[in-house]
Simulated scan of single mutants.
Amino acid sequence: MSTSPAVLVVGGGASGCAVTVLLRRAGVAVDLIEAKEDWNATAGSGITLQGNALRVLRELGVWEHVKESGFGFDSVGITAPDGTVLHVNRDIRTGGDDLPATMGMQRPQLQRVLTDAVRASGATVRLGTRADTFEQDDEGVTVRFGDGSTGRYDLVVAADGLGSATRAAIGVTDKPEPTGMAIWRIAAPRPAGVTRTDLAYGGPAYIAGYCPTSDTTLYAYVVEAHRDRASIPPETHADEMRRLASAYGGCWPEITEHITDPAKVNYTWFDRLLVEGAWHRGRVVLVGDAAHCCPPTLAQGAAMSLEDAWVLAGLLTSGRAWDDALFQEYYERRIPRVRAVVEASVQLGQWQLDGVRDADVPGLMGRTMTMLRELP
């Protein structure tokens, strides 16, 4: 490795931004490329960040911005479909007692906080840019970009998401698989009484829930069995989500009034991915959704991606050689924790798909979240 290492980060989502900021803080030269011309173009409606995600965001130096932009809370309510509150559970503070258990945020706000941090770090950013080929030798990687230019790097970090082209290009054959569920999401004004996540089980959907994302906003979602996406024209998305949401009481009637614009409704299948074996091939390393993803039943997708970035950056800046042993240690530190989250997230959904009424949902969630209090 050269005395002044250079890293290419492919993808400008949470894990890509996080690893860029952490490496730049240690003086590593980083180029970040993002295929989209507009970093925030498809940032989505809302996101639930558990405490262990907030812990990494604090390490990035952006916690104060996150706190100002989001809505923190420490409990989750379980309701009947008519809105009757059946139980309120105090959440485990997985990031430590000095951070909220949960923070709701508008996704574009989180993305803006992260991209601002990347730009402030001094990294070179190229939007609308893809990496086409990776030619490796013992010293590094030569990357050819979509515009015909090339670059030479000591390491490539593949943070290009669930459909990672980099993962496929380096010969990792694992692909995401649908779990059988899908989710409708929308951002909406926050009713004054919404100060935590409430989840309704039953009714026409498996789950109907919402999460406050600021003093004035929330995002709402309903989860159902997945359908052929081609059978749901985009112009009907608001009608479909409103039809499902209108069966729920409590705060839902006020929320449902705002489900009118199909362009603001997001419909997504739940997927599962866990790359088995090493998460690297030579000097190309996978992080985040490129290596693993899970249904949002535990709200741990972003947290796992951010933790990947934290662990990998810590190893890369430890003074050790960037070799197979280091990259394998990264995998071995991450895989037990990520596997537990992926399997628990999938199991929670599968119990609903199978109609299991005596499933130990509280036990599984409690064990998993307690494990996540430990540092990754």
Score class of each variant (00 low, 15 high):
7 V>Q: 05
10 V>E: 04
15 S>Y: 07
17 C>D: 03
19 V>I: 15
24 R>S: 11
26 A>S: 11
35 A>T: 10
35 A>F: 14
51 G>Q: 09
53 A>W: 12
55 R>S: 12
61 G>P: 08
74 D>L: 03
74 D>A: 10
78 I>C: 05
80 A>K: 10
82 D>H: 03
91 D>N: 11
93 R>T: 09
95 G>K: 01
96 G>W: 05
96 G>P: 05
100 P>M: 02
100 P>E: 12
101 A>R: 07
101 A>S: 13
107 R>M: 02
110 L>F: 14
117 A>T: 13
118 V>N: 10
119 R>M: 15
123 A>N: 06
133 T>E: 04
136 Q>K: 09
138 D>H: 13
142 T>M: 14
145 F>R: 11
147 D>S: 04
148 G>S: 05
150 T>I: 14
155 L>W: 11
156 V>T: 01
161 G>L: 06
164 S>N: 03
173 T>K: 12
190 R>P: 04
191 P>Y: 04
191 P>I: 02
204 P>C: 10
212 P>A: 08
220 A>L: 11
225 A>R: 15
225 A>E: 04
227 R>P: 02
231 S>M: 07
235 E>N: 13
240 E>Q: 10
242 R>S: 08
242 R>V: 05
245 A>M: 07
253 P>D: 08
257 E>V: 15
263 A>I: 03
264 K>M: 11
267 Y>W: 12
277 G>V: 04
280 H>V: 00
289 D>H: 02
290 A>L: 02
297 T>V: 09
299 A>T: 05
299 A>L: 09
315 L>Q: 14
323 D>G: 10
327 F>L: 13
328 Q>T: 14
329 E>H: 02
336 P>N: 00
338 V>R: 03
343 E>M: 08
345 S>N: 07
346 V>A: 01
347 Q>R: 14
354 D>N: 12
356 V>Y: 12
361 V>E: 14
365 M>V: 14
368 T>M: 09
373 R>Q: 15
376 P>S: 03
